[in-house]
């Protein structure tokens, strides 16, 4: 079936089986391989995308659901010359990335949360990220990265500009 939707701000049209997984539409048809597959059963969150403002596991969703939808993937966040999104910046600053396989999903779950709640409580963060598994970090630094990106985003809203130091070295 022919499906029209918006992906990372751009209109796209694909012609695929309606029962193709959205994960495969993104990865195999649109070559957006930043969205990962960790379990294929809706449990790990590696395949998280933002669909109409809400996070979903794209491994559980069928292409038919994309009709007219607005989709954000990790590729939409990175921007080009604009550099990293503050959430990505915070993940690096806080050491919240090890193997990085869970990272795109984590970053998107964080973004969807902060879009709704600029100042989330720890409990709200836990709820928002509880579907994103990470085996490497133990989550402590991910929690810190979410808190600090929330601060950054609030600051940038107040100042009307984006922060981000670009420095390679942080005080030990």
């Amino acid at each position: 079936m022919v499906i029209h939707f918006t992906c990372n701000g751009k209109p796209v049209t694909v012609d695929v089986d309606g029962d193709m997984r959205v994960l495969d539409v993104l990865r195999d048809v649109l070559d957006l391989t930043g969205t990962k597959e960790g379990c294929g059963e809706g449990e790990c969150g590696a395949c998280t995308i933002i669909l109409n403002g809400k996070t979903v596991n794209s491994c559980l969703l069928y292409a038919g659901k994309l009709q007219g939808a607005v989709v954000e993937t990790i590729e939409g966040l990175s921007g080009d010359s604009a550099g990293l999104h503050p959430i990505q910046e915070s993940f690096l600053e806080e050491g919240a990335v090890q193997c990085g396989f869970c990272t795109p999903g984590m970053v998107l779950s964080t973004k969807a949360l902060l879009d709704r709640h600029p100042d989330p409580s720890i409990k709200e963060i836990e709820t928002a990220l509880s579907g994103n598994f990470c085996r490497c970090t133990g989550y402590g630094k991910i929690m810190k990265a979410v808190v600090s990106s929330a601060e950054k985003l609030r600051d940038s809203r107040e100042d009307g500009h984006q922060s981000g130091t670009g420095l390679g070295v942080k005080r030990g």
């Binding site: 969205t35 966040l77 990175s78 690096l92 795109p104």
Partner: peptide, 26 residues
Amino acid sequence: TIIGKSVRKVDGIELVTGKAKFTADM
């Protein structure tokens, strides 16, 4: 000057942006 410092992960940018190529991405 560099040993003992919390230097950011040198391969971090490709990972946070989803650009790093894992085997399934090839």
